[in-house]
Design a protein around this nucleic acid. Structure first.
Lengths: 161, 161
DNA sequence: AATAAATACGTGTATATACACGTATCAAAA
DNA sequence: TTTTGATACGTGTATATACACGTATTTATT
């Protein structure tokens, strides 16, 4: 029988149908990857209602952080969660949807400066409201646990040498 | 000045150049997504030496788990870390590289059964050895912390309602 | 000033994600 | 037995990742 539920599957063992792990550290690696996929899927589902992808939303959020100032492509790329994102192409889609505007910088003609449009702000704010609500309902941990989790994740990223 | 380092950037605040978070829970969401990207990037770099992508490696690992038994595409898909992976297409690339073989199931002609080749096993084992070493060197947390992290991640995935 | 090096951005390619849909096959019901 | 529904897989499309490369512009060097 083939049963593949993943919405209410909490245990990693169930989710990826694997019981043996080399160590708790290796299991944590898989757990981080799986949880990220789970989070992304949940959020993307909500963003789809607004015609946005996760990455497009990320770019809009970054632009909002500096608004009403403009930002160049490189500055946006630096702040992306996934650093390997192809920001010029993500901006292409946002420009088509009239959520941002592109212009060449006067100070440095190599730079393209990006501006949020009023429509972009409106969609971003509406989607953020929904997303915040969904995150609060779905990520059910207390602030204390979340804080501890943040500490551990940063511990994970410290490499020796 | 534009400085965008992310290899030794440990703090989330530095990594995504953002200091204000709605709550520790929202920060944890971003932290999970960023850490997953960081992990994936690190692992992909090693896998590239073997001509493998992260997802191709995941499929090979799953097949190894049942070896010498064959597996159908659906069974593999169920065990993927990222459930939305397009497994038939990932198998296409592995088949071209002669790492797996495809055949129609005798019992159920709808099913395609996949078999690891000797070359597939060899490459998988070599890459796993390197990957395990790199994970041990890069994810520098003790088993106790890792265990606690696993508990918290599973707590995150429990949704109410 | 002329040249070299660095930088910012866009573009091209292979692979993957996310999702919809079509076809073949199997299982269940009328 | 025929039909209906479910299942397994492949394929098509839009977007993204990951990475290499080209062009224009700026900065640094000679």
């Amino acid at each position: 029988m083939h049963v593949c539920t993943y919405i209410c599957v909490v245990k990693l063992e169930q989710a990826i149908q694997s019981t043996k792990f080399k160590s708790e550290v290796h299991k944590a690696g898989l757990n981080i990857l799986y949880t990220a996929w789970w989070l992304k899927t949940m959020m993307s589902k909500e963003l789809k209602e607004f015609g946005l992808t996760h990455e497009q939303y990320n770019v809009l959020r970054i632009l909002k952080g500096k608004y009403p100032d403009q930002m160049c492509v490189r500055d946006i790329a630096c702040r992306m969660i996934e650093k390997s994102s192809n920001v010029p192409r993500i901006i292409d889609r946002l420009e088509i949807k009239k959520m941002v505007k592109r212009a060449t910088s006067e100070l440095d003609k190599r730079e393209t400066v990006i501006t949020l449009t009023q429509s972009g702000i409106a969609i971003l704010e509406a989607s953020t409201t929904v997303l915040n609500k969904v995150v609060d309902q779905t990520m059910c941990i207390c602030e204390k646990d979340a804080s501890e989790l943040n500490g551990l994740l940063e511990k994970v990223r410290v490499t020796e040498g």
